[in-house]
């Protein structure tokens, strides 16, 4: 029953989200060495200022009350106050979220399309030199730290050729209309996107290849061949549909990976997104911003997991009735 399945999944989603928020609270507000405690003990502040801080962060309340206040604030979209920017975290996050979504969206598109195509190609050449080469190259790309790949790309495009911008999201001081702006942003988007995609393509190409190879020796593939279907129809209609199921599962893992990658790539390319924000708040110990970014990242992964579960469910008729 689909409705019941959905209800069950939704309940699990709610529970996980709740656990995440609680985990976040524990991490930043309760554990010894938590930022607020550090701040309150910090020598930078005199007694009066410290007392004010304690009050501002509600440390004078019991943990339970703090927890309730924290929870209530979150529900109202209040992530606290940035030490560094002297603004509400929500304001600080504002444009960064959009920029990160843009980068991740572009990178995911490239990653999935190229990864799956490469995997299908490798599987169609299974156990040939091409197949081995694709596997080795994929593992090689996987072994590159995102930031190092970014540095190499910057090296190539900053030192040798100057085809594309290597830093930021717009050319400073460039005043153009809407289309000009769009073109400018697109040009800035290319290198960070490719860097992020390059490292993550491997994951998709390897999984696609392996599950396709697995699917190709299934009995129903012999039936398909006996029916006289063309190689392409066999591969796409019969094998790929089965092989994509593990790929869908891998997406959840991928999101966790690419968020880690985004922090590095945004740092290297000075892309003003949440990754760069995390880097800056780590450097300046701006904990409220760090906390908000981590919470949003975690929620993003959890939601993607939920969606990939639903997608899997709709793709595989065998699990649809459970």
């Amino acid at each position: 029953m689909t409705a019941r399945y959905f209800a069950r999944k939704f309940l699990a989603l709610t529970a996980t989200l709740y656990a995440t928020v609680t985990f976040n609270f524990l991490l930043f507000h309760v554990l010894p060495g938590s930022p607020v405690e550090l701040l309150a003990r910090s020598g930078h502040y005199d007694a009066a200022a410290r007392a004010q801080l304690v009050k501002l962060f509600g440390l004078n309340h019991s943990l339970i009350v703090q927890y309730v206040i924290y929870f209530n604030d979150l529900l109202h979209g209040n992530f606290g106050f940035s030490y560094v920017y002297r603004e509400s975290v929500t304001t600080v996050l504002g444009s960064a979220i959009g920029n990160t979504v843009l980068l991740l969206g572009a990178a995911t598109f490239v990653t999935v399309v190229v990864g799956v195509v490469l995997g299908v190609y490798a599987a169609s050449k299974v156990r040939t030199a091409t197949d081995t080469a694709i596997t080795v190259l994929s593992l090689g790309a996987w072994s590159m730290p995102d930031f190092f790949t970014g540095m190499l790309v910057i090296f190539a495009f900053g030192v040798w050729v100057h085809w594309l911008p290597i830093s930021g999201i717009v050319t400073p001081g460039l005043v153009t209309g809407f289309w000009g702006h769009l073109w400018d942003v697109s040009r800035h988007l290319v290198l960070p996107t490719l860097t992020l995609a390059l490292v993550n393509i491997a994951q998709f190409s390897l999984i696609t290849r392996n599950s396709l190879v697995e699917a190709m020796v299934e009995d129903y593939m012999l039936t398909a061949r006996a029916k006289g279907l063309s190689r392409w129809v066999m591969l796409v209609r019969h094998a790929l549909r089965n092989a994509l199921l593990p790929v869908v599962t891998a997406t959840a893992l991928y999101v966790g990976m690419i968020l880690g990658g985004a922090i590095q790539v945004e740092t290297v390319f000075s892309w003003p997104g949440m990754g760069l924000l995390i880097y800056n708040s780590v450097e300046q110990r701006d904990y409220p911003v760090l906390e908000a970014c981590f919470l949003l990242f975690a929620v993003a992964v959890i939601l993607t997991n939920f969606l990939s579960d639903l997608l899997y469910h709709s793709l595989d008729p065998r699990v649809r009735r459970t």
Partner: peptide
């Protein structure tokens, strides 16, 4: 499901 690298960064920062 927690994103590993961001979590590691947060923990290291803390």
């Amino acid at each position: 499901v927690l994103p590993t690298l961001p979590l590691i960064i947060v923990l290291a920062a803390l």
